[in-house]
Design a binder for these strands. Sequence first.
DNA 1: GCCAATTGTTTTAAGCTTAAAATAAATCCG
DNA 2: CGGATTTATTTTAAGCTTAAAACAATTGGC
Lengths: 169, 169
Amino acid sequence: MDDQAIPLDAETKAVEMPEDHREELRLWLRLLTCTTLIEGEVRGRLRERFDVTLPRFDLMAQLDKAPSGMTLSDLSKRMMVSNGNLTGLVDRLVASGHIIRSASPTDRRSSVISLTESGRAEFRTMAAEHEHWIAELFGDLTEKDRSELMRLLGKTKLSARRAIQGESQ
Amino acid sequence: MDDQAIPLDAETKAVEMPEDHREELRLWLRLLTCTTLIEGEVRGRLRERFDVTLPRFDLMAQLDKAPSGMTLSDLSKRMMVSNGNLTGLVDRLVASGHIIRSASPTDRRSSVISLTESGRAEFRTMAAEHEHWIAELFGDLTEKDRSELMRLLGKTKLSARRAIQGESQ
DNA sequence: GCCAATTGTTTTAAGCTTAAAATAAATCCG
DNA sequence: CGGATTTATTTTAAGCTTAAAACAATTGGC
């Protein structure tokens, strides 16, 4: 921008010129827009087609990948939501018969959550359709676009993690 | 994958071979992870530094870009949230003195929302710091990474919009 | 073995979010 | 003009989400 038209030695620049980070901000807003757009569509379709909410679907997706079940803490880390959030979500999914809680054999504080037979069957039906929706939503990207986007998001993920970790030192 | 090792003519493939969309699914999950990671960090910092929530910050950001104010419908479209959501959010920001509602001169159904003087000042302070956080979170991306990511997310946005529009036909 | 620190979970209070229904005003159009 | 449709907003009910505090069980160190 205008700033960069003024030639300055590196040191002066670092001290006196507040850097312009509008580009990063626009990037973040666009990332957020993409996610919100897709997430909203997926949420609506899950509700219309299967009368299920996105958080419930997400929780079942985690459990489907863990045949022997997961603790609430595992789920909390994987889903990146708070512990307290999970308590209620799990309660509702137990009530609807999709999952079960069983006592952990090794830790009396913990319970192990797993899909019921019918919960798993129902999830797999939903997941198959869900996968098609996602493919359709990303349908205009070429194979090369997708692999490049995957790479750049991988780099973004690492960058954000570094910034988040570093801050607490 | 295994599927593709079996040579089949195009028609047979299209009919009998369910396509594998795991790649798109992984891409979506990574996009979601990046957004969740960054959003969570920004939310936490806004709360700690300024005792403000992300939705309130977002609403003020929209208003800061519209000096003459916006209607609830405008805000709803821009922020991609439901109308009902905004009613409560606006009520709380009016109560805290950050924004004001005024009657629309042309439409008695509408009210126009704008930042108060102090609301604008407070927002600008927060926004300046917020911009640095974002720059830090994306800090490991090169200039080229950022422009390429911007381009690919632009393409993703268009792709998703097309898929969403097309569906309602 | 005991005490401190950590870990796993729940509870609480507040706020966010949605979909759907309701209300009211403006606009369309015959 | 007047009724039908659309648009702007609010209300409602349910569920999601968080941070913080509380509680209980486990682990680590002495």
